[in-house]
Nucleic acid binder design. Structure first.
Lengths: 303, 303
DNA sequence: AAACGTATTATATGCACAAAAAATACGTCG
DNA sequence: CGACGTATTTTTTGTGCATATAATACGTTT
């Protein structure tokens, strides 16, 4: 009775996303073997995920026939899945660190006591933080927060790195945009530019932005370009949780992104690279703490 | 009685390296607090490392006075430390994978049986492979080797990435070479060019090369440039264990490296960047398997 | 034949406890 | 006062076992 496993929860989310991206409508069949193939797992966890979705009303189970979509999944944050323990602990540590409630170096035991979580959960989160370059293991014992999190220096270095790298991705000879992904991204940008700025959450804005840059990097057809950009995004996701920008900034970013996409579509990648570099230079220049003239409830976290 | 810990072994190595780099001679005092400060650990492991070195004859212990250098440490692979279990398993897996004795995906239990090691050791090695991007965790169970290891595609992408990134490191406005490190590296290069090609091992060649590129990246004063180059080196270290080049190639690489350093010293970073790009382009072009005209015993692994 | 249901097997994970090792504190000697 | 020796405390690592869960096999239904 220990609830559904992580894999099962993930699969549940993934299945809904899959159904949505495949444009399925109510009543569509979700054959287990197809999902197994798609997600590279055996039928056991797939069935568990489906039964989970059934209990949550997303799919219907017909004995001897299988599972069928019960309602068309919405676009945003589909599954009823509340934030996982892992996500919660991750964010708690992030917040405590940024607000200096956590010192430069901490022992595992400290964290264990502080958050009252199991060793395995803490272990997973630390592993993730390690992978993202946010903490380092100290030689003897304990962990040390990398100065990535707080220093202005790191912020600047991140932008300089991206300014160097991302425009070059556009100039790679094999460059080819994932048209489908680009179209989806463009759609989201347009929605914002055309007035939906207030209706969108900061998290969505951040994710849209991150996705845009990853689509560009993926276009280079080179896993290392993509990897590098993804790493930068992970870093920024962590840090930007406490940064705040006004809506005018979000609009500007969207317009600049759209201009880059337009240049690529027009076949002028050199111009697109120039635009992208300018975009990064201008967004990187202003420190978030120097802005903040808007009223709090109208503020938008963005980069 | 389970032998010295990993940290102790590492420290033993590090202490010798430290003494060497500080230019200490026989009889020099090695105060514990200094070493603690330097290596960010408490006295306990430092003392253990020193007593280890004493047993191996590198230092002498005088009661109530401390530890003193017994003989001037040699430059290469100082400590008697044989390759650690971790290193051995790592290499065994690398070799088995590259020669296709290991399938695309394996379970942890498979590996446990195959190599007859403890879970904790295997866990550490897998963690390292994961960190280096060489394996991925499969969603359900088991591990999957990333195609980084074998494919020509990955090789090309790696070079393209480096060609894009490394010259730009040279052009960063804050660029400043670590003069001491550069001088040491230059020394090694000269030794090879001036005829010591045969006396040097493939491993040393690889490490010298990797170090050179890291020194350049570090010069950019930007942790992300350095991180990216370090990651590439880790990747290449794994793969290149089975690549073989002739000495003429090693010589050429050394000369090109020296030319880059000379250009930097002359203050012409733009020219240095051009030379570096050309160097990467030429070394990346030839597949190692297309060479190999020398007799086996004269072959040198290099990149 | 393709998909599902059920049962079996293999694998990994969580947890508790023992043992190792690092940090820390304090007294002593040069 | 700075470095060393010893003792104590705290933290981490290792190991075995029970449990959870994924993979697999095989029969059944559409």
């Amino acid at each position: 009775m220990s609830g559904p496993s992580r894999l099962q929860e993930q699969l549940a989310d993934a299945v809904l996303e899959y159904a949505r991206d495949a444009g399925m409508t109510t009543g569509a069949h979700l054959p287990e073997p197809v999902l197994c193939e798609r997600f590279k797992v055996s039928r056991t966890p797939v069935r568990a995920a489906l039964s989970l979705l059934a209990r949550r009303g997303y799919v219907r189970h017909v004995p001897r026939k299988g599972y069928f979509l019960a309602r068309k999944p919405r676009g945003d944050r589909t599954a009823g899945t509340a934030r996982s323990d892992e996500e919660r602990l991750y964010l708690a540590i992030a917040e405590d660190r940024i607000s200096r409630r956590l010192p430069d170096h901490v022992s595992e035991a400290d964290l264990l006591r502080r958050y009252g979580v199991t060793r395995s959960l803490l272990g997973r989160v630390l592993q993730r933080l390690l992978h993202e370059g946010l903490v380092e293991r100290r030689p003897g014992r304990g962990w040390m927060f990398a100065p990535v999190l707080d220093s202005q220096q790191a912020h600047d270095e991140s932008y300089r790195f991206r300014i160097a790298l991302e425009p070059l991705a556009l100039l790679e000879p094999m460059f080819a945009l994932d048209e489908a992904a680009a179209a989806r991204s463009e759609e989201k940008h347009r929605a914002i530019v055309e007035g939906r700025v207030r209706a969108i959450t900061p998290v969505e804005l951040f994710e849209m932005n991150a996705e845009f840059h990853e689509i560009i990097a993926a276009g280079a057809q080179n896993r290392f370009f993509l990897q590098a950009v993804q790493q930068q995004n992970r870093l920024r996701r962590f840090v930007n949780y406490h940064w705040i920008y006004g809506p005018e900034r979000a609009l500007r970013t969207c317009r600049e992104h759209l201009a880059v996409l337009a240049a690529i579509r027009a076949g002028d990648r050199v111009w697109a690279a120039t635009l992208l570099r300018q975009h990064l230079e201008s967004t990187g220049r202003v420190s978030p703490y120097e802005e903040g003239t808007s009223a709090p409830e109208r503020l938008i976290r963005f980069d």
